[in-house]
Structure formats: structure tokens, C-alpha cells
Simulated scan of single mutants.
Amino acid sequence: MKNVKLTIQYDGTNFSGWQIQPNARTVQEEIEKALTKIMKKPIKINGSGRTDAGVHAMGQIANFYEEFTMPIEKIPIALNALLPQDISIREAVEVPRDFHARYNAKGKKYIYKIYNNKIRNPLLFNYTYFVTYDLDLEKMKEATNYFIGEHNFKSFMASGSSIVNTVRTIHELNLYEKDELLILEAKGNGFLYNMVRIIAGTLVDVGRGKIKLKDLPVIIKSCKREKAGHTAPPQGLYLAKVFYQS
């Protein structure tokens, strides 16, 4: 029995997220359908985590177990011939039997893209958060420092989530300008539901002057969702990379 690790890219615009759900188009279902056709038997895959409707991925990871004779390096070619244009398998490698895409993940990197302009760009509509307000970029950059380290990020988790342990560590949080966009890069040992999007929305609120820098420590310590900023929309979010033990 081989254990195969897949590296996956997808445009989340027309998906209802990663995870299979009734009467909805999902990334997991499309990949499982293609694998089932290739292997000629039902195949289930384990993803490193869910992404919501509209969220994109540059480096989603999944794994599956199966006996087969096809060279593993040929799997991306075979899968991409069957998959829709908005999904691509970038790599397939054999990994140890005990590897699990979700349970062995040690951290993740997300990217969030903001298009700050008075005039919308239809070519960026599905791939960025369009913000028309004037933003103070230097204050936003300064604000990123308050999130780095280990904190209880309950204030930055979507209401209604059932997660009990809301302590996470953000190793890096960088905001910079590139090609007319504001790019936020977040790297940590894990992220709560909507955490990156709420941090992004909070930074935008700081840039607008709605939230003051001195209030950020109070917001974090409050553990109350209503104290933090708004939830930025899904289309600006990208799962960039999943980290595993080397």
C-alpha cells in the first residue's frame, strides 16, 4: 500500500470550499472523482485543512493510500488531464505510511491580497479585497507586530466555532506593497476559523483609523470577537504553504 502526497493549486472562485458537501462543487470531490477514475475504485483523500468558498490555494496538501503500478511522478499528468481548469496537481510523491496531510502538519503560511484604489479592477475582483478607503500603510505595518508570538486569538475566530483551544503562535506577519497590491503574509503553527481574514480586516480598520494601535493589546486579551475588526472577504485569501517536520 503506497501513501501518496499531493501538492495542489486551485482557484477557489467557483468552489464551495475544499471539503465535500451535499449539492455543492468542492475541490476535494473533484480530485476524488478523478482519482477514482484513474484507480478504477473509490479513492478518498485527506486534506491538510479546509478552505472556504472563494478561498484559493497555492500549496494545499492532501494524501491518499492505494496499491497501483503507475509511476508516482505520472500521477499529476494523469489527474490534470481529468481535472477542471481551476485545479492543478503540482506534484505527487510517495511518503511514509504514517504520514497524514492534516495530523502531521506543523504550520501553515497564508497570503492575503488587498487592492486599495478608488477605481475597481475587474481583473482582480475574484482575487483581492477591493478597498476604496485611504489607508495608513505605516500604521498597518506597525499593527502587525502586536500579533506576532503566542496569544489567545479567540477575538479573531469566527463566532460559533466549536474550537476549545484558541491559543496559536504567529511566527511571521508581514505587510508590504507589490504591483499595486497590499500583501499580507502570515506564517504560524495553526490558524483558527477565519483568523487570517479577521486579522486582515482588523488591519484595514487600523489603516482607516477605526481602530487605534493602542487598543490592539486590549482587543487580543479580551477574547471577544466583537472587539476585533471586520472579517475581510474570502477572495483575497490564499493558502500558500503547509509545513511538515523535515
Rank of each mutant, 00 (worst) to 15 (best):
I72V: 15
V206G: 04
Q60T: 09
M70W: 01
N14G: 06
I211F: 09
A200M: 10
D136N: 14
Q19L: 13
L79D: 07
D134G: 02
N63P: 09
A81G: 09
V95L: 04
G229T: 02
G49T: 09
A186M: 08
I111E: 03
H151V: 08
A158E: 13
F191D: 04
Y193K: 08
G12P: 00
I31T: 03
K108S: 02
N46P: 12
M58H: 12
I198F: 05
L182M: 06
I87W: 02
T144F: 01
R225N: 01
K212A: 12
L135C: 08
Y103K: 13
W18L: 11
V204I: 13
T144K: 05
T169A: 05
E91W: 04
A78D: 10
Y238K: 02
K227Q: 02
P71N: 04
K141W: 04
L6S: 13
R50M: 08
I199Y: 06
L124Q: 03
I111Y: 06
E67I: 09
L35R: 07
V167N: 11
M58G: 10
K154N: 06
A105E: 04
S159E: 14
M140S: 04
A158P: 05
Q21P: 15
E177D: 06
Y127W: 10
S162E: 15
D86F: 02
F125V: 00
G190V: 01
G190Y: 00
E226H: 07
L173R: 10
L124G: 03
K241W: 00
V206Q: 03
K37R: 14
N23C: 12
A105Q: 08
L173T: 04
F15H: 04
D98W: 13
N145V: 05
L123W: 08
N117T: 12
K141R: 12
K141H: 01
K108T: 03
E32T: 08
Q28G: 07
K210A: 05
E142S: 06
E185V: 01
S246C: 02
P233E: 14
S155H: 03
L239Y: 03
G12T: 00
F125T: 00
Y10H: 02
R50L: 07
K154A: 07
G59Q: 11
H171W: 11
G207C: 05
T26A: 11
L83S: 10
S222V: 11
G188Y: 00
S16Q: 12
P71M: 09
E66Y: 12
N174H: 10
D98H: 15
N126M: 04
D98I: 15
D205W: 10
G207T: 05
M1S: 15
K41W: 12
I198S: 07
L82T: 12
L239E: 04
D136Q: 10
M1W: 15
N23H: 14
A62N: 11
A240F: 02
G47E: 03
P217E: 06
N80E: 11
V206L: 05
V164C: 12
T132F: 07
G207D: 06
Q19K: 13
V164T: 15
W18T: 12
G160D: 14
F99E: 09
I87P: 08
V164P: 07
E142T: 05
K74S: 12
T166K: 15
T166S: 13
N174Q: 10
Q85G: 09
R90W: 00
L135H: 06
N80D: 09
A101D: 07
T51A: 05
M70C: 01
G236P: 10
N116W: 09
S162H: 14
T51M: 02
A105P: 10
N63G: 09
I119N: 06
D215M: 09
